[in-house]
Write a protein that binds this DNA or RNA. Sequence first.
RNA 1: GCACAGGUGGCCGAGCGGUUAAUGGCAGCAGACUGUAAAUCUGCCGCUCCUUGCGAGCUACGGAGGUUCGAAUCCUCCCCUGUGCA
Length: 384
Amino acid sequence: MSLQFNLIRETPSGGRRAQMLLPHQTVETPVFMPVGTAGSVKAVPQDTVEALGAQIILGNTYHLYLRPGHEAIRRMGGLHRFISWPRAMLTDSGGFQVYSLTQLRKISDNGVEFRSHLDGSLHTFTPEHSMDVQIALGADICMAFDECTEYPATRDRARESLRLTMLWARRSLDHFRAHQHEVPWANDSVPQVSNLRHGIEDRTQSLFGIVQGGVYTDLRRESAARLVEMDFDGYAIGGLSVGEPREATLEVISEVLPLLPKDKPRYVMGVGYPDEIEQYARLGVDMMDCVLPTRAARHGLLFTSLGRMNIKNKQYAEDQNPPDPACDCMVCRRYSRAYLRHLMQAGEPLAGTLNSIHNLAYYLGIMQRVRDSLAQPAPTSAIP
RNA sequence: GCACAGGUGGCCGAGCGGUUAAUGGCAGCAGACUGUAAAUCUGCCGCUCCUUGCGAGCUACGGAGGUUCGAAUCCUCCCCUGUGCA
């Protein structure tokens, strides 16, 4: 058992308030995980990500393998130490790149040949290789190597994609179990590995399986059942928010969640808009990640209690109000809409930084409120 | 004063007789963004009108004339800018 998942409270609608004990952090769930693909939550320094209350962030296996290289990171003590992030990390396996780098890769049962987007060089990713890279990086949670199925996909296509993902899941798990002791901080006593109270068992990496199957609920159910049988440390639902209608996303999540073990974390990958992450968390999703708050921020889109705000718009040119009057983040406390708009207009890098800080604060704030709400005892109808 | 080189839409800058309201870039205006090939991408960007369309009209490549069926593109004169020589 690599990971301890303590359920604190569960609501009738399935929402769960829990704690997930990881080597570098006790993560309060449901949790939103900022994405730090190339070893950085883009535009936001680590101390700020920490100050915002992020408990766990993502890294990406494919990107870090290409640059600076997983062996280099291993030699430097692992990803946590390399990027100076003391809390938990999760690495995506490269499965999303199988989907997003469609012009640059070739898939076979064995794995995927990628043409590097950096220099055109050829690289082969197999489930075993993805595990080796992820173990070298040393994130608290690793992900099985999967194929993120595109949308739309025919049933045949989704089935074939699922077959591959299940095959790779088995190989990922076998290889991971055989090598997870090789994590760079296995015998570490540096401050980064601070969660010693969990005991030695908690100081190992965990591996999550990924449910695929497109928008076909029977394929999704089959996928979930087979993964549960394999016994992963946690389960993710992947292949969502790739263009399908939102009702389809919800349907897949609703179908799959009840099939996953209650005593293990459930992670919906790559979602979503602010209202989505709240909705899914209340349905029992424990973990979510999304590039949206940071990417949109760099492009001038702020998520606020008033809705979406494109801070580049002329209407904010002399608007001295804080971006979100209801927000008490370090950006909203200090800067005006007019200034943020000016920074965007001027192409100042600070624009992306400040916007990202606000959006992350907004996302993390939503999850904090959801956690608080889930922790409340269910109101009783009995009247004394 | 003379000799070259130039004056193009908010700016820079193509075009050098006809599919030119005029390539590009910048600026401007708006939109998109969901396990990050994204500080990116897309659309609009002279004015007016409407049955919003590969629509109609008007204005426009320093100024004024001219050549031509047709001129930002050729000719003449003038104005202005830069460089060189006096």
